[in-house]
Amino acid sequence: MRRLIYFVLAFLVWILVSWPFVDGRIDVQVVVAGLMASLLVALLFHDILPKEHHVFISPVRVFWFLAYVPVFFYYVLRANLDVVYRALHPAMPIRPGIVKIKTSLKTDSAITALANSITLTPGTLTVDLTDDGYLYIHWINVQAEDIEPATQLIAQRFEWFLHKIFE
């Protein structure tokens, strides 16, 4: 099952990158090459690809993922305006530090998505994570040093969505 899912995904990426629709016709050679390459990828590398492959075929999870995208972009935009403000302000109002937060997410993909979301959003950058669910976050403007309030400020807005998507 997961080989099939990754085969389809690899083939989709191939189609998008090579774009075999020339002059309204489909270039069969490109498609055949893509089928073979995707087959190899799915057979050889399904072990190292994410184990949460059921996410791709569950309509509910895909729906929550699509709902997550605009929320995510809103925070990314806010993060950028925040960093631009701090970079351009003559006095450079930054208060950096590394804080520790705890996440309730369990699966690898969910924690990866959380870490990447944190890195791209307001003033925070994931430095390291531990096996028991703690993340070390570099914060450009520290508002709370303890684990509980920092978790609420940094991670909570994403965790709710990521629970729906991955767990």
Binding site: V76, L77, A79, N80, V83, V84, R86, A87, L88, M92, I94, P96, I98, T119, L120, G123, L125, V127, H138, I140
Partner: peptide
């Protein structure tokens, strides 16, 4: 451009990474 300005102005590696990842990615 703003990301690059941040890269130059911020004081240490970690703050510079913030500017480099956020602004340059978006």
């Amino acid at each position: 451009i703003f990301g690059c300005i941040g890269l130059v102005r911020f004081p240490d590696v970690y703050n510079r990474l913030q500017a480099a990842t956020k602004c340059v990615t978006l």
